[in-house]
Design a protein around this nucleic acid. Sequence first.
DNA 1: TTGAAAGCGCTAACAC
DNA 2: GTGTTAGCGCTTTCAA
Lengths: 353, 353
Amino acid sequence: MSPAQRHPTMADVAERASVSPSTVSRTLRGLPTVSPDVRARVEQAARELNFAISRQAASLVTGKTGVVAVLVTTLNSWFMGSALSSLGPLLRAAGMELNVYVTPDIAERTSFFERLPARRNADALLVFGFDLTDEETARLDDLAMPVIYVSQHAEGRPSVYVDDVAGALNATRHLLNLGHRRIAFAPTVGASGFCFSSRERLLGYQQALAEADIPIDDELVVTMALGDKRDLITGVGKLLSLREPPTALFAEQDELAVAVIHTLRQARIQVPERMSVIGFDDHQVADWFDLSTVAQSPSDMGRVAGELALQLIDDSEADRTRHIILPTHLIPRATTAPPPGPQSELEARRTPS
Amino acid sequence: MSPAQRHPTMADVAERASVSPSTVSRTLRGLPTVSPDVRARVEQAARELNFAISRQAASLVTGKTGVVAVLVTTLNSWFMGSALSSLGPLLRAAGMELNVYVTPDIAERTSFFERLPARRNADALLVFGFDLTDEETARLDDLAMPVIYVSQHAEGRPSVYVDDVAGALNATRHLLNLGHRRIAFAPTVGASGFCFSSRERLLGYQQALAEADIPIDDELVVTMALGDKRDLITGVGKLLSLREPPTALFAEQDELAVAVIHTLRQARIQVPERMSVIGFDDHQVADWFDLSTVAQSPSDMGRVAGELALQLIDDSEADRTRHIILPTHLIPRATTAPPPGPQSELEARRTPS
DNA sequence: TTGAAAGCGCTAACAC
DNA sequence: GTGTTAGCGCTTTCAA
């Protein structure tokens, strides 16, 4: 099917167009110092020969690879999918290729940091949502290329992330404003590795409670493993068996929120009548299930991170400590409502005024 | 932070180890013709200098890029995420990089096929779930590298896909075996571009009906746009307003199935009591919602496709028309049940015996 | 087992 | 505006 013939080179194109290789190079790179008729001849010759430039040869002399590398623990998530789906076309438009390093486990990760295969094979590296050790960060620091930290804050280094604290603050405030006083928070455990966001969201949650003068109750924070039904049921069970069970729950991610809702409904606990649930992400499922949530835009994140990468590649003078913090916004839908009223006996007893 | 110093080259390593560049090359490539002590010296020097080989320079002479390219319309789907998450590590283990081309719209796609940027920048191309025109296929044919068609059948070319017909057949048979006679099929419309699967699943559905001597009723096939609630409601409405409405629905994808179930439940139509629903994929959400479905494994698909790619790269004699068809299996869960009984009046009238 | 030399396909500096 | 020349960093003969 595909005859393994030699690729045409610039020399071939040059010969066909009766010019020198340098002229071909100039033409194909769009330099202005080429006369129109020569340009036309070269372009036609290139087309006829089906010429495609060899990046390797070009890189060798320019020192630029034309590649942006991305380091992720998985691609199998809504966040990464959206982010890369917007990053990819952006890079292509800038004539760059997208190289992906997937390190799902410790072994892969160790090997990546040992060998740093990106070292000479990319012009910039985007590190997505990693919880890096100091040693790893140090390794990245002497990578001699811009390294952009995405979905995480990295002190003194370019990073792009969403305002998780503010988002979580707003989600919790929304529940407080509805009248809830016992509000649970459910972080996700899992390999997705977005620990930074997880911590930040907890912080926002606690901050909102502090604002409302509600003491923090550790029993209301229950970590749940997404995708492990038994664990989910156990977690929900913990909350339901508290002396004062929560009337609302803030899940760290929409996917978890949806799973929790399903679990609650199976236990005949109506959402939002008996229990309000709010998520974080504005994942596709949030819309399907009318889930109240805090929206973030991974595709914006991918785009912004990509633009930052391109800028840092082009301009070595650019500010390399810049942080871009993306906004979130609350999307109230149908899974949040005032707590069950009239006030329960318990509630009445607690506020005797 | 990162001093833009020159990378050490093999010459630097050679000097440090007091050997020639060729010896460094041989050592680092693991060729056996290097004496142990020289090998040790070279390896240490390389380590001390933090040497990383330049793929570009190597490719220039070997003609191999060490890159596998992947062409996709989006990364923002369960399928692609899982497939690439398994493909990535596999390639890395083989010392290959993963290059991703995302072409979400016609413009990107046209530009890809016009310029074929992968041409000299990859050793193999994996095309995921595209509905290619003949012209596009022809362009890929003279790419002078193995092109593997994934999640689609491509006549006379290496391809890897799941047995969609059999899967759909089994899903529909399951509904028939439960006693359903009016079974709807809901294909998805959307940019995901897995048209091949869509057609195949329709075929399997029709085949099952034929087996059971049930005439095909086009009114029972309603295309729904995933993510467009209004469209979803309209689609469900169409089915519910038929003279003989279906008692079961087979959705082309789990995500659609889940959305349909939600729509039905909002309309107070119980699933599975009043309407059985089965999906296809065994997506993560299927488990959360106890959705009956037909399982396929995108990660197996990624792995198998990657292995095939590596094999075709290594062995130019390998069979380039090989098709690998992956199995599916039925996962009956809680959204399928016998049709509502006792037999409705209508049903009774139709089977007067 | 090792080294010397040539050259992969391109770009950049310099002539013209 | 265009051609000539000299490498970029590696691998690969070919000799030794």
